[in-house]
Amino acid sequence: MIKISELEKIYRTEEVETVALNKLSFEVKEGEFVAVMGPSGCGKSTLLNILGMLDDPDAGSFLFNGIEVAHFNERKRADLRKHNIGFVFQSFNLIDELTVFENVELPLIYTGVKAADRKKRVEAVLDKVQIMHRRNHYPQQLSGGQQQRVAVARAVVNNPKLILADEPTGNLDSSNGNEVMQMLTDLNEQGTTIIMVTHSEHDSRYSHRIIRMLDGQTVTENILV
């Protein structure tokens, strides 16, 4: 599904040049659950942003389902993203002015799903993450675990082929964290590819494979299954 080779990303400011990704190459197959680990600043998040098409690489190749997307413009990337990729963030990133229902509905609006259809699908997914009773609440009225469940619901409502999770349990206590990890595992079992950045060895054990990074390069790959 994903094949990156010789991927490079360099951040420049007036004084400093930081190499975030240094000729990084790996492959992720459809249906895999991959964890990316490594110390702060090793380039994990940069990688995730490029994989999520929020950012573009400076050099190298990025094949998504066999299509080269490394040099797509913003519009093409947005288009590919909204149909194929769901995001889960450490800090949930729900829109404060929208209710639970409306937050989850958002991706469907952008892909042009009709209102009646949207309602059905949002309710189904809210049911699945067991937050249906909170559908008309605003994010501030929910606990962290509940917010992250909403975020997961939003990530999957469009049936994306790929979910990118950036430390999804980082702001949660362990029981809420386990719940979220269980949800991701369930999604993976239903066929969704998942790439997750994490600091937590515990969480990484939910995955099939761990890619360890240091200074923008992979150092080891452990296959867990």
């Binding site: 929020l54 947005a78 909204k82 990133n93 829109i95 952008y110």
Partner: peptide, 16 residues
């Protein structure tokens, strides 16, 4: 800004 970021992440184009 946060709202803009989220909307972009869930698929909003700049035009929208």
């Amino acid at each position: 800004a946060k709202e803009v970021g989220i909307r972009k992440a869930v698929g909003s184009g700049r035009r929208q």
